[in-house]
Write a protein that binds this DNA or RNA. Structure first.
Length: 195
DNA sequence: ACCGGGATGTTCT
DNA sequence: GAACATCCCGGTG
């Protein structure tokens, strides 16, 4: 059994563009479910036109402006949830979006939540799919990852981040698409799109 | 494999 | 009233 260490608040309390690539290879855990993170994006607050925080704090994005290590879960497209790890200092409004992961444990439970997934590799392949597989919704918004608040946390199992991750533009935005703030594990089969 | 359209409703302008 | 950090399904090739 490899060691399994929860990421401390100090891990998150940095620039999201530094935290994002380091999250690759870490393991998202919620109850008996776990999956290895393979794709992430950085969102950089008031300077970032693609970020929810660009126009300041609202009721919806308040968690983003809270302490590092918070889980920012938001609702979009009338049916989907997406999850971020809040980074930086309080008030900055910076975070890392969890876009895709490789299912490790609790696969049966994930499958029952995601009947549309044909293969196991589709269970957490995309930010909203990942949330659906894990059952993450608005009730998890604001959960504190370093203390496994509400059962959700991110752990280091000894797998190092990739030395040369794939870097590219963020997906699904209408502003800020030119910024190369998406990181993924090169060639991984569980990415939201091939890269 | 690839592409196009519809779903669905909260949030902010 | 428009936009939305998306996904699924059914078409075609």
């Amino acid at each position: 059994m490899p060691r399994r260490k929860r990421l401390p608040r100090s891990f998150y309390r940095r620039d999201p563009r530094v935290v994002a690539p380091e999250l690759l290879g870490k393991v998202l855990v919620q109850g008996g479910l776990s999956a290895r993170i393979v794709e992430v994006e950085a969102y950089c607050g008031a300077e970032d036109p693609g970020s929810h925080a660009y126009r300041g704090m609202t009721k919806r994005n308040a968690t983003m402006f809270g302490p590092a290590g918070g889980l920012y879960v938001y609702f979009t497209y009338g049916m989907h949830w997406c999850a971020n790890a809040v980074c930086g200092e309080e008030g900055e409004g910076v975070a890392v979006l969890l876009r895709a992961a490789e299912p490790l444990t609790g696969i049966e439970e994930m499958r029952s939540r995601r009947p549309a997934a044909r293969r196991d590799r589709d269970l957490c392949r995309g930010p909203a799919r990942l949330c659906q597989a894990f059952g993450l919704d608005g009730s998890f918004d604001g959960a504190n990852l370093p203390t496994a608040d509400r059962g959700v946390t991110i752990v280091d199992d000894g797998t190092p981040p990739p030395v040369a991750p794939t870097i590219g533009p963020r997906i699904g935005l209408s502003a800020g698409t030119d910024l190369p703030w998406r990181w993924s594990v090169a060639g991984d089969l569980h990415l939201s799109r091939p890269a």
